[in-house]
Design a protein around this nucleic acid. Structure first.
Lengths: 207, 207
DNA sequence: CGAGTAGTGTGACTGAGGTTACATCAATGC
DNA sequence: GCATTGATGTAACCTCAGTCACACTACTCG
């Protein structure tokens, strides 16, 4: 398996062996939900390919994008499950066709004791997600919607590795906890300024 | 020292001994800043008494309350410093006269290997702060200002252990990244509905 | 006691963004 | 081709909250 290439920080060979031994490879179609809010976390996902979208939802069904989990990463929320309540407070959806290794949570605590590289991987994950949550907070609290939309577009371009995005206004609106009309309005303004080129179900980012 | 009483989860006696040996007791006056954004983290604070206010600031100087660190707790941000960059991305200010033990960061990694209870304390801290950040995000993204203000008042009542709060409208406005006039306006409405009683530099919470 | 100062009250205005209500418009299937 | 459906464009309107301007009020300190 290409575990070594995708997760170079897990440098202990023994660790990689147990991961392959105890983990289950799972494949998700685009849009498939891996975990819903309130669901019980029974495993930790190590993403091999594709990406997961982690989001939060309020009582009225409004969504908000928290961050993406890409290849070589894992979800910080699921790491906390080894202690106390194992219920998820976020939703995880495959943003594209995605392959991951599911590790039963019972190994979490054990491995952090046994494998230095696993411990440091977990710690780094916490730190990274923490910073991302802080950025998300900055975005909502301090930035205006157009800036936030730009940021989402940029990050999608990065992930897709292409300026050509296949996405609807509605999807963008959901990620930003806004409404479709508002996003259409802002995108139109951006098009007038030459920042994007709009199409049906797609748009080209030009900045 | 009352370490055992305040941090009952650190059940290993050896651990408590090293903490007392290697840590330095620090006292902060109300309003004193422990750590500023961009500052270098050289120690982890274990709060013995009082509380720290952890906040974020944008480039224009607007502040936003993230969470409080109370007695028996520590700051998650400072835990991440043992790996990679040691610069703080938040500000920590004493909310009231506060006593804490400052642990040099070099012990962090060592202790998580050596003391099971320290490791689990660190993990629990991460989990707790994660949840609080998510709540903060919910607040900003989904709730209106009056709800958020109510929440802040409630949490201050809890901390003070009294319905009588000594605080100015300006302080509340800063915590919520809002403006004084708006908070005054909302407080006045709340007074009309009998939820609070207003005074100069103080207010009584009646809900 | 009078001046200065920090905190508070209030009204008018503004702008961002959410909502409503339609009008198109492009793909798809029949 | 034509109907259906989902995606997009747009205008009118409304609400919340930020800003400005200024009055007022309770302390403090010389």
């Amino acid at each position: 398996m290409e575990l070594k290439k995708i997760f170079p920080d897990l440098y202990e060979e023994n660790l990689r062996n147990v991961i392959e031994q105890e983990g289950t490879v799972v494949h998700l179609e685009q849009g498939e939900m891996l975990m819903d809010i309130g669901g019980f976390i029974k495993f930790v996902p190590l993403v091999l390919e594709g990406s997961l979208k982690i989001m939060r939802e309020d009582k009225d069904g409004h969504e908000l994008l928290l961050y993406y989990v890409k290849a070589g990463e894992t979800c910080a929320m699921s790491l906390t499950c080894c202690m106390g309540d194992a219920q998820s407070n976020v939703r995880a959806v495959a943003e594209e066709p995605t392959t991951l290794i599911a590790i039963p949570v019972r190994y979490m605590d054990l491995w952090t004791n046994q494998y230095q590289s696993w411990k440091s991987f977990v710690m780094h994950t916490y730190q990274k997600r923490f910073e991302e949550l802080l950025e998300t907070i900055d975005g909502i609290a301090f930035q205006k919607l157009d800036d936030r939309l730009e940021k989402v577009l940029k990050s999608r371009v990065d992930m897709a590795g292409s300026n050509h995005l296949v996405v609807t206004h509605q999807e963008l609106a959901s990620e930003l906890n806004s409404s479709r009309e508002v996003i259409s309005r802002i995108l139109k303004q951006m098009e007038k300024r030459g920042m994007v080129k709009l199409g049906r179900n797609k748009l080209d980012v030009l900045f």
